[in-house]
Design a protein around this nucleic acid. Structure first.
Length: 287
DNA sequence: AGAATCGACCGGTAGC
DNA sequence: TGCTACCGGTCGATT
């Protein structure tokens, strides 16, 4: 399940392979993946060939490619099973090989690199969107203007603390609301709550400013550590652009660990449902 | 108007 | 072997 650390790992990989390279061919498949553009993949085959990738950027769980001399951005959201694979074009002659079973888009770069977007569950999406001025003064695709800054972007957490504390929704639900703070998914929400000693079912309004501030800082810290480990891989659904898994799973304290002993107090980790999402926590250490 | 809640989307996999 | 329930990120509809 790609959250900020996994998306960042993939963004860096795509940037490394694509920056400054010219796209020679764009293949698109199932238009459900481009459901936010009326023309579907047809809009890409017109625009992308000949374009040079200027950079690959990210806010929260969204990543996007920018192009030299263009105001259009290609937004990629990985949903819960999306992947980007990098390969070298191997065959001489003949046309491009057909798209694979779950391969929804492939970009050929002039140096022989191929970038593929693969998504088994089609929760992800690919969107062509013009750049516009967003939060913190950053230029972001208009498609994600409502997505709030993520913990890695935020230097001053106070405005977010104010926003969080004025709702009575469960604190975990607020952490997952991309319009309040972006990039946090189920795994890192539970890990941040554990580190901050907060139970996810508590109303956000019940926390002190200091507690909420510490929680947001904890979300930043845990995700920074996860990036250093290459992200969290629970199954084959998360791998980086070279196909390698991340190694942060071994550092998790609560997520997916129902019944296991809490590393701090030894009591069994519990699992409940909050707003339709699983929540793993320690009954003794979190309140 | 805005906030909160809930169902739909999808398919691999766990569990029966 | 085959079937069903489940999970999760996000959006849109409903309350």
């Amino acid at each position: 399940m790609p959250e900020l650390p996994e998306v960042e790992t993939i963004r860096a990989g795509v940037h490394r392979h694509a920056e400054g390279r010219r796209i020679t061919l764009a293949l698109g498949g199932d238009n459900r993946l481009m459901r936010h553009n009326a023309a579907g993949f047809a809009s890409l085959s017109q625009f992308l060939p000949g374009s040079v990738v200027a950079g690959v950027h990210r806010r929260g769980k969204n990543m996007w490619l920018t192009f030299e001399g263009s105001n259009e951005a290609l937004v990629i959201h990985l949903g819960m099973s999306g992947q980007v694979h990098v390969a070298r074009r191997d065959s001489e002659g003949g046309g491009p090989s057909p798209l694979g079973r779950h391969e929804h888009m492939r970009l050929h770069l002039e140096d022989g690199t191929e970038l593929s977007f693969v998504d088994a569950r089609t929760f992800g999406h690919i969107t062509l969107s013009p750049l516009a001025q967003g939060a913190l003064g950053r230029m972001v695709p208009a498609h994600i203007l409502k997505v709030s800054p993520d913990p890695l972007e935020l230097e001053d957490f106070e405005p977010t603390v104010e926003r969080v504390i004025r709702t009575s929704r469960p604190i975990k639900t607020v952490l997952l609301d991309q319009h309040v703070i972006s990039g946090i998914g189920n795994i890192y929400a539970d890990e941040a709550l554990y580190r901050a000693g907060l139970y996810g079912g508590s109303p956000a309004s019940a926390g002190s400013k200091q507690q909420i501030h510490d929680l947001l800082v904890a979300s930043k810290t845990v995700m920074q550590e996860a990036i250093l480990a290459g992200g969290t891989s629970f199954d084959q659904f998360y791998v980086d652009v070279e196909g390698d898994p991340g190694y942060f799973e071994r550092s998790l304290n609560v997520y997916g660990l129902e019944g296991e002993p809490c590393v701090a107090c030894g009591r069994a980790i519990r699992k409940i449902t909050i707003q339709g999402r699983s929540h793993f926590y320690c009954r003794t250490c979190q309140h």
